[in-house]
Simulated scan of single mutants.
Amino acid sequence: MEGFLRRFLRLYRPLITSLNELLSPFELSYSLWQVIYYVKNNGPSTLVDISTHFEVEKPTITRRVYRLEELQIVKQIPGRDRREKIIQLTEIGEEIYRICREKITDLENNLMEGIPKEKQVILFQLLPQIRENILNKEGLNDE
Rank of each mutant, 00 (worst) to 15 (best):
E69T: 14
N41Q: 13
D142F: 00
E91P: 01
L140G: 00
P128E: 05
K58I: 15
K40A: 05
R63C: 03
Q76H: 12
I61Y: 02
Y37F: 13
E95Y: 11
V35Y: 04
M112A: 14
I61R: 00
M1Y: 05
P59W: 14
W33L: 05
P59L: 13
T90P: 03
I16V: 12
W33T: 07
I50E: 04
I86F: 03
I115A: 07
E94S: 10
N41A: 07
L107V: 03
E132W: 00
L32G: 01
Q72A: 09
K117R: 15
S24R: 13
N20W: 04
N141C: 03
G93K: 01
I96R: 02
Y66K: 12
E57C: 07
D81P: 01
Q76C: 04
F54Y: 15
P25N: 10
I87C: 03
Y66S: 12
L32F: 11
T90S: 07
L28T: 11
I77L: 11
P128G: 03
T90G: 06
K40N: 06
Y30F: 15
T46E: 10
L89W: 10
S18T: 13
T52Q: 08
F26H: 15
S29E: 12
N20F: 06
K75E: 14
S31K: 09
E108H: 11
N136Q: 13
I115M: 11
I77H: 08
I115D: 03
I36F: 04
L123G: 01
V74N: 02
L9S: 08
Q125P: 00
E57F: 08
E21W: 09
S31H: 09
L47T: 14
Q88I: 13
I99L: 14
K75T: 11
S31M: 08
I134K: 00
P116Q: 08
K75G: 01
I99S: 09
Q125E: 15
L15H: 14
I16K: 13
P116S: 05
T105Q: 09
V39F: 09
I104C: 09
K85H: 05
R82P: 15
L89E: 05
E27K: 15
T52E: 08
I36C: 01
F124D: 01
F54I: 04
K40F: 14
P14W: 06
H53N: 06
V48S: 14
P14K: 09
E113S: 11
L135K: 03
E70I: 05
G43F: 08
Y97W: 15
I92A: 08
F26G: 10
M1I: 03
F26R: 10
L22S: 07
T62K: 06
L47W: 05
P78N: 10
R131V: 00
R13E: 10
R13L: 12
R67W: 02
D106A: 07
E21N: 15
L5H: 08
T62P: 02
G139Q: 04
F8I: 00
R101L: 06
M1C: 05
R82G: 05
Y37K: 11
G43L: 11
K137G: 00
Y30N: 06
N41R: 15
E95C: 02
L9V: 09
I50D: 03
E108V: 14
